[in-house]
Simulated scan of single mutants.
Amino acid sequence: MFYRPEAGHGLPHNPFNAIVAPRPIGWISTRGADGDNLAPYSFFNAVAYVPPQVMFSSTGTKQDRGKTKDSVAHIAETGVFCVNIASAALKDQMNASSAPLPAGTSEFESAGIAQTECETISCARVVDAPANLECRLTKIERLAGEANWLVLGVVTGVHIREDCIVDGRFDLKRDGWLSRMGYRDYAAVHELFEMERPE
């Protein structure tokens, strides 16, 4: 099978959503003048080590936000955001926070997710997340398409839950790494293997 995206694929569901997988989920918390927001984004990843940097992209709109969503609107307003790592153990809370609530409604409150303050930025973070990355915005870039935005940030603070440090390494085998596989499919990763790079 071959198709050009602009011509369509002829399948009942878009295969592109599942081809680039698994994808980690950036559970992004923000704060704006209208309050706190929490939303998951599966177009998310780390992009540099020194200084540590991350990215996520928002690919839709909300009626009450014009050409973007609450997360991007808040980040444009304040210049900060927090990435909360969503483990498999938190899948239901993560999913609940994806509800399209009106602007100014806190997903922390509506989904019953415990929150606390960040250290280096004015923003809330998810208490039970295995790790939180506090970030300062470096760039919001308009992507091709009607409502596609790329958000880049530098990490200014890292929280790691104590039980997720095992033998000096960040370890989520107990909770499971959560990843998006496309469509409505997710994966919980509990098994790892090592590979040595060639010299």
Rank of each mutant, 00 (worst) to 15 (best):
G157D: 09
I160N: 05
H159G: 11
A89Y: 10
G8D: 03
D34V: 13
D185T: 11
T59W: 12
V166A: 02
H190V: 02
E194I: 05
A7M: 11
R65H: 10
P130S: 08
T30F: 07
E199T: 14
M55A: 13
N148V: 03
L133G: 06
P130E: 03
A88H: 12
R169V: 07
N17C: 05
L172Q: 13
R184F: 10
T138P: 01
H9V: 00
R174L: 14
L11P: 00
S110G: 02
M94E: 01
F16N: 05
L152V: 07
A96E: 08
D175V: 11
A99K: 15
T30Q: 05
E6W: 05
I28A: 00
P24K: 02
A48M: 00
D128V: 04
S122V: 15
D92K: 14
G157H: 08
S42G: 03
Y3Q: 02
A187I: 10
S71V: 06
F108R: 09
F170V: 13
P130D: 06
Y41G: 00
V20A: 07
F108C: 03
F108P: 08
G153S: 09
A88K: 10
P100G: 09
E146C: 02
G168I: 06
P40T: 03
C123I: 10
P22M: 00
R184E: 10
A129M: 05
P5G: 03
K91R: 15
F44M: 05
P15L: 02
L90A: 10
E199N: 14
G35Q: 01
S122G: 15
M181S: 07
N45G: 15
W177N: 14
Q93K: 15
P51E: 00
P15D: 00
G157R: 00
F43W: 08
M94L: 13
S97T: 15
E141H: 14
D185S: 12
I19T: 09
A96C: 10
S122A: 15
S110W: 08
W27M: 04
M181I: 07
M181P: 06
W27L: 04
F16M: 11
A131I: 05
T59A: 12
A18R: 06
S110D: 11
V158M: 08
G112A: 02
R174D: 14
L192Y: 13
